[in-house]
């Protein structure tokens, strides 16, 4: 996940549910400033909301980092949501619709994946990173 040099724009500590709201508002604002459409802003913000809520549910706290990057003619906005919790046992299973070890609908992760261009999970006990990316072609 550290394959490219990322330009960090902002970072929000996630400790309580207010931080979910702050994270998604900042994510939305960054997407807007980066020229994404209203619908892409909404999708990105909603995905952040889902993933940061998981941090509060399954770990205790974490951080949401926001980045911008230009690569191969694409402009991207990236959110990396990091926690030091127990980790996701089986990321593949966690990504399937309806799978939940809690009392949720199990739609958070698979739903978020459908809202963005890329969703990557890198999880071991003690460190989980969920990364989401939206991209837009830039010309010239």
């Amino acid at each position: 996940m550290d394959k490219y040099c990322l330009n960090e724009i902002d970072s929000v500590p996630i400790k309580c549910t207010q931080d979910i709201v702050i994270s998604r508002q900042k994510g939305r604002e960054l997407a807007r400033k980066s020229g994404f459409s209203v619908s892409e802003q909404t999708r990105f913000a909603t995905a952040i909301s889902e993933i940061t809520r998981n941090v509060l549910t399954y770990a205790t706290e974490g951080d949401c980092h926001l980045f911008e990057n230009n690569l191969d003619g694409y402009h991207m906005v990236i959110a990396q949501i990091v926690d030091q919790g127990p980790g996701i046992d089986n990321p593949k299973l966690a990504m399937s619709d309806g799978y939940s070890t809690g009392h949720g609908l199990g739609l958070g992760l698979p739903g978020a994946k459908r809202l963005v261009h890329e969703l990557n999970i890198d999880s071991t006990p003690g460190k989980t990173i969920v990364e989401i990316i939206i991209k837009r072609r830039v010309y010239g």
């Binding site: 209203v38 619908s39 802003q41 909404t42 999708r43 909603t46 889902e50 619709d97 609908l105 739609l107 698979p110 739903g111 978020a112 459908r114 809202l115």
Partner: peptide, 14 residues
Amino acid sequence: VKPAVSSTLVDMGM
């Protein structure tokens, strides 16, 4: 419900 919110919910499966 805003248009973008509505289509986002549908894509999430809600």
